[in-house]
Design a protein around this nucleic acid. Structure first.
Lengths: 152, 152
DNA sequence: ATTTTTATTTAGAATAATTCTTGATCTCAA
DNA sequence: TTGAGATCAAGAATTATTCTAAATAAAAAT
């Protein structure tokens, strides 16, 4: 008889997130995301993860990112068709992509804001997930005069 | 031929949208989007376009979609990392992706709604574009009992 | 503790959407 | 009409991601 217990698991590698096991590799990947919350791509995560665990493979990084996304531990962030990025911020938030510095910033939702109220949703729609991505220029890049389009 | 409309229809091949030329191919692609507003992917557009212009190539369809998106004639719609879809709806609207029927629906913005008010945007951010994608189950699919998960 | 089962990792091959390249063709303007 | 530049077509190339299969590790059962 294979196991069947749905939730409520026991000791060690379990995290309490459904059937999710926090393996060594997953821990490393998760830590990478926690260490620098700059929305790295899978390959960027891979590079950093190798620093902590040289033998880890790219496929594993992809696996970990996918499993942890499913488990709800992290979020996958997509901007246009670029490589997916990942973040461990679980609060409801939007993403702001600065087209100057190509950084992604988390934008928090205001306490009382009602996202769905703004839209003419047909009666009876069930919303599972709302994804808000903004594009523009961040304060840092915006204040820099057009001349000094240097770095930062 | 159906649709008469708006833009991209005047005299020569010029449309008034910057330096954009409405060539035969681009017209075909644009008409495909106008004929059936169901957010087709590039390959779907290609298939339909071949009906109107058998010699058209996939590369050209990609070119047309890209140029017209740049020109602001159509919009590229991305849901997660799936193939991009395209729509000629220029009103500000969000996209609702039904995970049952895999259709994309346009969701209009309520007249007075203020999108940016909901977010804790840092002072001095310049927003060029906001992209809202919702995922869930549409009324049609939601009302169908779980048993009749048939089509549509 | 040893065996059996199941999940996870790894490396590389495969995939799929998209972009690029090159040469041909078309359009506009002189 | 000619020349320049834009656009098109066909196929090769790219790239992020997924898949496959074998090896390993962890958990459960004996």
């Amino acid at each position: 008889m294979p196991h069947s217990s749905s939730i409520a698991e026991s000791a060690s590698t379990h995290s309490g997130f459904g059937d999710f096991r926090m393996t060594k590799q997953r821990k490393v990947v998760y830590d990478v995301l926690m260490d620098e919350r700059d929305h790295p791509t899978a390959s960027e995560v891979f590079l950093r993860a190798k620093g902590k665990m040289p033998g880890i493979s790219l496929a594993t990084v992809y696996n970990c990112l996918e499993t942890m996304t499913q488990a709800g531990l992290i979020k996958q962030v997509n901007v246009d068709r670029e490589a997916s990025r990942y973040c461990p911020n679980l609060r409801p938030h939007a993403h702001f992509f600065c087209s100057e510095c190509e950084q992604i910033y988390d934008i928090d939702l205001r306490r009382h804001a009602d996202l769905e109220a703004a839209w003419e949703l047909p009666e009876g729609s069930r919303i599972d997930h709302v994804d808000v991505a903004m594009k523009g220029v961040c304060p840092k890049c915006g204040s820099a005069t057009d001349l000094s389009k240097s770095e930062n």
